[in-house]
Every structure is written in C-alpha cells, then in structure tokens.
Write a protein that binds this DNA or RNA. Structure first.
Lengths: 361, 361
DNA sequence: CTGTTAGCGCCTTCAA
DNA sequence: TTGAAGGCGCTAACAG
C-alpha cells in the first residue's frame, strides 16, 4: 500500500463539498466560501491527514517553488555556508533547494538540463574562479533566453554577458591586506599567492596578488621576487612555498617581516613550515590571509583574515531570484561586487597572543 | 514568453506521428516503433530542443527520482562529504537531491512534510548525535507507515524502531585510539571528551569516552580525574580543557604523556593551548583524535586520527534506498555500524616530524 | 506497429 | 456562493 495518497477528492467527499471548494479553502480564497463548509473542509483535511501533492500543483501552476543550486563542490568552507544563508531566506517562503555538485563543465551542463526538466523556478551557480571559466559561461545563455532567472556567484564573466552576478572584491582584499601590514610598520612584505601560474590562471589569485602588489608599489616598497611564492591555494602548496621562502631567508641578508597568504589552506601549510623551522608568527613574521574557516579564530596564532561576506552573498542572490519570480517582466541584470570583511586577530601582531612562550613542562 | 515549453504534442505534430509514439521512442520502447518513424521523432526532438517535463512525468509515474536529504547543518566536515558520496551514486542514475538543513526538530518535521508533498522517493537523514534524539525519532514513524524508504545516518535510535540506520562505531574509535597510545608505550593517558556532561549528553561523546576508559582499565592503567576534560566538541572547549589540564600539570608531580581528544575541533583548541605553553606535540605529549578534516594531514603536527568512513556511509545509505525503490515489497530494515578509519600521522609520535625545532631566524 | 483514450492530482474559469 | 468541466504534459493500457 505504498503511497496511499489521500487526494483532494477524498477530502471533498468527506466534507460533502466539491473539490473546487476544497481547493478554494486550501488556497486561502475564503472570500467565496461559507463558514460552515470551510469548517467541514478543514475538519476533513485534519481527519484525513491530507497534504496537497506539490507535484500536481506545480503542474498546473507552472512553478515548483524550488531553486536549483549548482556548485563546483560541496566541500570547503565557502559554498555551503552560502547555501545555508540561501536556505534561511528560502525556507520560510516555502521554497526548496535542489542541490547539484558538478565538478566539471560537462556535468554542470548536464545538471542544468536535469534541473530545467525538473522545472526549477531559478538557479544559483557557485563555482571556483578559474579565469578560464569566463569562456565557459556560454551554456548559461539559453537560460537567459528562456527567461529562467539565475544568479552566478563567484565566477568571472564578461560584462557583456549581462547576467546577474555576485563577485567578491579580490583585488581590494589583497590591497587592504598589504595596507594593514604596511600601516603596522612593515616595509618588507612577502606573499604566497594562489594559482596565478596555473593554466589558465585563477582570476581570484591574480586579483588578490595585484592588490597586494599595488599596495607595495604605492608606498615604494621593494618587491622581492624571492618573496613571492605560488601556493596553488592548497595546504601542500602553501607549505612548499613557505619552505622556499625560508630557504632564501637563510642565505640572504634581508628577510621579510610580514607575509600575505592568499587563502586559508596555504596559511595552514605556511604555518606548518614556519613552525618546524622555529619561525614564530607573528613575532618573527606577521601574517594576514583570506578566508575565514571555523578554526581561524582558534589557530595558533589566531588568524587575521579577510572573510567572504557569505551572508550578503547568499541573501542578495536569493533576493534577486525572488524579485524575478515576482515580477512578470525581465528585470535588468545586476552586477554586484562585495567587499571582504576584515577580522583582526593575532597572526598580524595586532592582537596580543594569550601567553608567553615559556616552557613549563 | 517565459517558459515557452515545447511539449510532446509539438514533437508529435512535427514528426507527424502520435504522441504515444513519441513517448515510446523517448522511453526506449523502441521495440514497437518502426525505424522511419523513430528517426522522424528523434529529428523533431532535436529540432525543437524538446526536453520532457519531469514534473508531468513524475505525476503519472508516481515517482520523482528525487531523494530528500535532511541534515542538521550543512556546516562542518562530516555531512557534506557524505552528501557528495550520495550524489556520486545518485546522479548517474538520474536522481536528484533536495537538500534541507534543519537545525531543530520542528524544522525537521516541517521539512519532512514539505518533501513528502514534493513526492520525494525517499529520505536520508543525517544529524548530530545527542542521545536525547532517540526520543525524538517518533516523527519518522509515519514515513515507515506510508512505506516511504529512508535511511538514518549517525542518529542513535532504539533498536525497536526498526529503521534503516547507519552509525559510526564511536566506542571502538575511543578504544582503539587509547590502544594505539598504549601500544606506543604510554601509560599515563589524558583525554578531552565531547559533551558528556551536557544535558542531554551526546551519545557519541559518551561512547568514545567509554571506549577510551575501557582500554585504560583493561591494562590497569590509572585513570586520573584531573586528566579528563570536557571540551564540548568545540574549539574553545578544547582550549579550555587543555588549559585546565596544563594547570594541573604544573602543580602535580605526575603528568600524562599522551592524550585522546575526541574530535578535531577540540584538537585545534588543545594544540593552541599547548603551543602557548611551550608543550610540544608529540614530543611532550602524544595526541590521537577523531575526525579527518582536510587540514588534518597539514597541521603542525599532522593529526593522527580516526576518520569517519564517509564513502561507505554515503554509498551504503544510497544503496539501501535504491534497493527499496526497486523492490515492490518492504525490505527488512538494516542496522549498520561502521568502523572509523585510522590514519597514523605525526601527532601521536609514530611518524617523524619534518624537521627539528632549530631556530634559523 | 501505431493512434486513441483515459487519467495522475490539482487549479481555475465559467455557469448555475 | 458553489459545482462542473477543462486542462497542465505525460504515460499506459487498449484498440486498431
């Protein structure tokens, strides 16, 4: 007896009214229904434990109250927090999220087809930012043509595309990170960047690095090639890059007193390298990074970092989508760039660390 | 012209066949369709860019090829990796996932209703393991009665309930963690547990701790009350617990040479406390923990840890669901307990750390 | 082999 | 104010 399925007909029968009356009551069109009948309907609904079939309703209303969320991966601490924020907005409104994680372009296209077939009311895309991706957004064009609302978060697109997009101000984060270090009095500042040298290079890595560079140049600070590493945004890459830096450090007369590490993974790697070489952060080298994982405030030292504005990103994206749902005609595409949020903690030397390095053991 | 919607009728018309023929072709029932007509249909499908409306299909087939995944939170590094594994299995089969993150029982019940209305074919539940939750699983009973397949991961349930459930062997992990330390020669072993003292206590915290305790007792090792902290599974809790341990350490004549920390967050906190008190891991104290975040292998020291068998959990859960979908009659509920996977790294002292503590700066 | 027909469960005119 | 009827897009008998 799988899915006994109480239908609107059962309710109508029990309440001894017509099915359209039941429908009226359930959809709040009470105006045209008499008290008595409405009560009978409601009673029948309770008694039968009736729950309208959303699929059938979608069928006739031509909207499903679901949005497709397509992400490159569910791992990492960026996308899912945003999804959480999206849910926060959507759930109270009765919307559901169909999640698709699509590592490559092909599966993304595939997912779009599936979700379109599922008649999702709109899409939110979130992906990593290889600058190459800008050439890979053509498959979103059909959505635009079919007038299916969608928002793209964190993907570099040609302005011409005229999609709704939300980006993070990578350049600014790099610039401000360096500025903070400079304001603290540092004049020799190293960096471990993301995959700038990857083919294709990652746009966020390039932008963050340009920001850092700009800040240094602005102050006429020396840019030492050996102090620039490429950590490929990974733990291991950050570790290796820091090791190289330490190598140069050992044999050179000059050494940096501060470093900008372009994401949290590389920071872990760099801290590991520093730790095992007796280089203390921030005492020997001050550190600022980007990305705000849960452990950032609890590391040793606690990480001074620029955090993705996840709440804003999620809320704004959802808002844009909902506005489109409401409005009958096509709204102009929005192009939003959000600033990172700065959290000053211990790693840059601004906030004192909890205790001294004395050994009690 | 939102949703122009090419329908099966349009295809039929263009191909000059009946709609049922189109349907046949699209559903692979080629047996009854002539070559010529089939080709005409296929051509029309291409030309019109026809994509069947999955909603309409669901309506008549009474299955949606979607499963509802209900999680306590999308944050943390346990649930989403499992969701990834679930997707891996489901996507190739054309199934979609509707994700609902429901922090409390009320919203979970709400989500179940919504997803039932959406006619999901089945559910996968994943939640944190307050032992209290066992009294809160009554709301799953209706699913059972309605014969909607579902699997519960990581939630303690009364055996009587007879649900499909997948659990992690918490006790074993605690036990084996302690055993590993003991086998390494340690005889004085501390622990920072999860919220055992919380009301209600967390089952996983209790179980892990019991495992640890059992291993010590088995070997007649002393269980020192001051060496047992409650870190509430949080970064800060782990930090505080470690601080207390260090306090006792300073004034006592005895001190532990090893510690079992019951999850990764508390480990970060504990490492922070140790770091700022000059206590080196594993040199001064060996550490084993549970949970395998991406950074575990890149910490300083790299974490020796018991990892959740996420792949198994995801695959098995999905398998169970799919089997139910296939079978017409109700399958017996499965009760599966999975072992953690042990990763030996540096924090327990087994694997040598990369370099000495020499200071070059 | 192919076309006609009757729904799936619900909403929504349109009469009554 | 209420009920009857006609789809939404598709599938699945059932006739031809």
């Amino acid at each position: 007896m799988r899915r006994k399925s109480v239908t609107i007909r059962d309710v109508a029968q029990m309440a001894e009214v017509s099915i359209s009356t039941v429908s009226q009551v359930l959809n709040g069109n009470n105006q045209y229904v008499g008290e008595a009948k409405r009560d009978r309907v409601l009673a029948a609904v309770k008694a039968l434990q009736y729950h309208p079939n959303a699929i059938a309703r979608s069928m006739v209303k031509r909207r499903t109250a679901t949005v497709g969320v397509v992400v490159t991966t569910v791992l990492g601490n960026l996308f899912m927090p945003i999804v959480e924020c999206i849910q926060e907005v959507l759930r109270p409104l009765g919307y559901n999220i169909i999640l698709a994680s699509t590592p490559d372009l092909e599966s993304e296209m595939q997912a779009i087809e599936t979700l379109k077939a599922q008649q999702v009311d709109g899409f939110i895309f979130m992906s990593f930012m290889s600058s190459h991706t800008q050439y890979q957004s053509a498959h979103l064009l059909p959505l635009k043509e079919e007038d299916i609302p969608f928002v793209v978060i964190n993907r570099p697109l040609e302005k011409d595309y005229d999609f709704n997009q939300i980006q993070f101000n990578e350049w600014e984060a790099g610039y401000l990170a360096a500025r903070h270090l400079i304001n603290l009095g540092h004049t020799s500042i190293a960096t471990i960047s993301g995959p700038r040298n990857h083919v294709p290079p990652w746009k966020s890595a390039v932008d963050r690095h340009q920001g850092w560079l700009e800040a240094l140049k602005e102050q006429n600070l020396e840019v030492v090639p050996e102090w620039i590493g490429d950590g490929r945004y990974s733990h291991e890459g950050g570790y290796q890059a820091a090791l190289q830096l330490l190598g140069h450090w050992e044999q050179a007369q000059k050494r940096p007193t501060a470093i900008f590490v372009a994401n949290e993974h590389m920071t872990i790697g760099a801290l590991r390298a520093f730790y095992y070489h007796g280089v203390r952060v921030p005492h020997d080298i001050a550190l600022v990074t980007i990305g705000n994982p849960a452990y950032a405030a609890h590391m040793f030292p606690a990480l001074t970092t620029f955090a993705h504005p996840v709440k804003e990103a999620g809320h704004i994206a959802t808002r844009i989508l909902l506005d489109q749902f409401q409005s009958s005609d096509t709204l102009p595409a929005q192009n939003i760039k959000l600033s990172y949020q700065f959290h000053i903690r211990e790693s840059c030397g601004t906030v004192p660390e909890p205790t001294s390095f004395s050994v009690h053991a």
